[in-house]
């Protein structure tokens, strides 16, 4: 009998996926329901906003230098 799992499907680059996995580990594995492949994970519905914010924070730490270029003219 087929099974259906409710949640939010997230599609992203493999690099972002790695960060998401790391965030998941830091949060007692409470975010990811199913690790599908390198570019897709199924996460809990109510954790989506939280993950978005956490990911933004993580990215701000890692890709700072790229942000501050094109603001001239």
């Amino acid at each position: 009998m087929p099974r259906a799992v409710g949640g939010v499907l997230v599609e992203c680059d493999p690099s972002i996926k790695a960060i998401i996995s790391r965030i998941n580990e830091q949060h007692n594995h409470d975010i990811i329901i199913e690790d599908i492949d390198d570019e897709h994970v199924l996460i809990k519905k109510d954790k989506h906003e939280e993950l978005k914010a956490l990911l933004k924070d993580a990215l701000r730490d890692t890709v700072k230098e790229a942000e501050e270029t094109s603001e001239s003219e």
């Binding site: 087929p2 799992v5 939010v8 499907l9 997230v10 972002i16 199924l42 989506h48 978005k52 990911l55």
Partner: peptide
């Protein structure tokens, strides 16, 4: 640049046979 992931609410279906 700001959005690194896209997301959809829904259901993952497994074990279809």
């Amino acid at each position: 640049e700001g959005e690194r992931m896209t997301a959809w609410k829904g259901f993952l279906i497994k074990d279809v046979g």
